[in-house]
């Protein structure tokens, strides 16, 4: 049996499409964890990245924190948090957010900091307030890079959200962990395929978001 046979068997079994352990249910759970983690990470990473990028200050401290956060293994962090505060959604969110903040923060900072200074200078010279300079001059030009930071964060979250299953929560990780435990490789391959599919969907969504939000003048097309 190769992995295509496993996948074929898994998706062909109608029992896998129903109930609390069915594909729609697990997919939805996975999506919920991912979206929540991404929202929280963006709520932290975007404002800090925009502000530091605009002022050009705090870049070194930022890089240090981001690198430190990157060095933390998500699974280890999960175990640690569970030991500290017990089971639940929160201990899953913490490692996911810690994972996602650095790429959002660092790319947003870099994206805004490297915007061509002359339009910013012109804007300031015409009496534009700083907030307006940030949101109407810098962000529109920095948007492709900012989106790419969000995209890599989203992809990492989608693949890492499988750890939720370790702390008895749902999501696509259930198939992988339960499958490994039960030596049910159909399940393992099926779960992994679904995670890969969700990652792909994420990529497509970000591509579409770029198409609709980035000005043709910036895309140069």
């Amino acid at each position: 049996m190769n992995i295509f046979d496993f996948a074929h068997a898994f998706f062909g079994d109608s029992a896998n499409w129903q109930g609390y352990d069915g594909i729609p249910q697990r997919f939805l759970e996975h999506l919920q964890y991912s979206l929540l983690a991404l929202a929280v990470a963006a709520a932290i990473g975007l404002p800090v990245g925009l502000l530091t990028g605009h002022t050009g200050r705090g870049g070194n401290a930022l890089a240090f924190i981001a690198n430190a956060a990157r060095a933390l293994p998500s699974f280890g962090l999960l175990v640690l948090v569970v030991l500290l505060i017990g089971f639940g959604l929160l201990p899953v969110m913490i490692p996911l957010v810690v994972l996602a903040v650095p790429p959002i923060l660092v790319t947003t900072y870099e994206a805004v900091r490297t915007v061509d200074p002359s339009p910013v200078d012109a804007a300031r010279g015409m009496g534009m307030p700083e907030s307006r300079i940030l949101f109407q001059v810098e962000v529109p030009v920095a948007l492709p890079l900012i989106l790419s930071g969000l995209r890599s964060a989203a992809i990492q979250i989608v693949s890492t959200a499988t750890i939720a299953a370790y702390v008895s929560l749902g999501g696509l990780g259930r198939y992988i962990i339960d499958g490994l435990y039960q030596r049910d490789y159909e399940k393992v391959v099926g779960g992994a395929t679904l995670v890969a599919f969700l990652a792909l969907v994420t990529l497509v969504l970000f591509w579409a978001a770029g198409r609709f939000t980035v000005s043709p003048g910036v895309r140069r097309r």
């Binding site: 002359s118 000005s215 910036v218």
Partner: peptide, 9 residues
């Protein structure tokens, strides 16, 4: 200014 500093977007 020198390079016009137009808003690309």
């Amino acid at each position: 200014i020198q390079n016009a500093g137009l808003f690309q977007h």
